[in-house]
């Protein structure tokens, strides 16, 4: 309850910051619209040559495109600003202020800032999903919606954990900008259903780098194609990665405390 109140306060403060920069708002919307256009266009181009990608037809891939945009918005709005801030705080030593506050340090460091305007991508992504579903004339039933909510929550948890692990690495390497480049490269594969990729790569994208959990599986859920194994796998993956990121953060804070000056 207390943490929820803090979260509201943090986001309110971030929103106030964003309001200070009006031009930024316009730019964000333009960039958002531009990327939605590009993404839909490239998907359309693919489908001029074929009528399915990895067993997914145009509308189904569009659901993935929507989820991809949606998740991108969440990353931009919630994760990226905090990760940059953590890296900056480690470099400047202002992390000391986070660590001397009487709240959970990971909570404070990872959710302190946000860029609410980036939520335009969340809106446009959701719109794409809705449009794709209505083009199919498909209305997900209660179970599909429930499964989707669970899968999507896991997807957010997984992405959060990956970003936090990357941010935590900055305790040792200070400059970790290259890592987020690496993430972005791999991230792009989430535009397509994981079945697009063949054998080994598909396994890598599911188990090693859990990209499949981010867009493909939630899309399967909303389309009513979820099996228990995948559902259980996603929950396990979310729990494991989140657990690891929390442990890794604590470990980093402890070693920061015993080593840095």
């Amino acid at each position: 309850m207390r943490y929820l109140r803090l979260l509201v306060l943090f986001w309110k403060a971030s929103f106030l910051v964003e309001l200070e920069y009006r031009a930024n708002f316009v730019v964000r919307i333009l960039v958002g619209v531009f990327w939605v256009g590009v993404t839909i266009l490239s998907t359309t181009v693919f489908f001029t040559h074929t009528n399915n990608i990895g067993g997914w037809d145009f509308n189904e891939v569009l659901v993935i495109t929507g989820l991809f945009t949606l998740m991108g918005g969440i990353i931009q709005a919630l994760l990226q600003p905090n990760v940059s801030k953590i890296i900056e705080m480690v470099r400047l030593g202002t992390l000391d202020f986070v660590l001397t506050k009487p709240v959970n340090s990971l909570f404070l460091a990872s959710l302190r800032y946000s860029q609410p305007f980036s939520a335009v991508d969340v809106l446009s992504g959701s719109a794409i999903v809705v449009v794709a579903l209505s083009r199919m004339g498909y209305i997900p039933d209660g179970l599909a919606v429930l499964e989707f909510v669970v899968m999507f929550a896991m997807s957010v948890l997984i992405v959060y954990s990956i970003w936090m692990v990357m941010a935590t690495l900055s305790f040792w390497f200070v400059k970790v900008g290259n890592l987020s480049e690496l993430f972005n490269t791999v991230w792009d594969t989430a535009r397509f259903p994981v079945s697009t990729f063949n054998g080994v790569l598909r396994i890598v994208l599911t188990v090693v780098i859990p990209i499949a959990f981010i867009t493909t599986f939630p899309a399967q859920a909303v389309l009513g194609r979820m099996d228990e194994a995948t559902l259980g796998g996603a929950m396990a993956m979310g729990a494991i990665l989140f657990g690891f990121s929390v442990w890794f953060w604590r470990y980093a804070v402890r070693s920061y405390s015993s080593a840095s000056s």
Partner: peptide
Amino acid sequence: ETFLVNQAIYE
């Protein structure tokens, strides 16, 4: 704004 955040953090 920082004061208000600290108010919440320190309860």
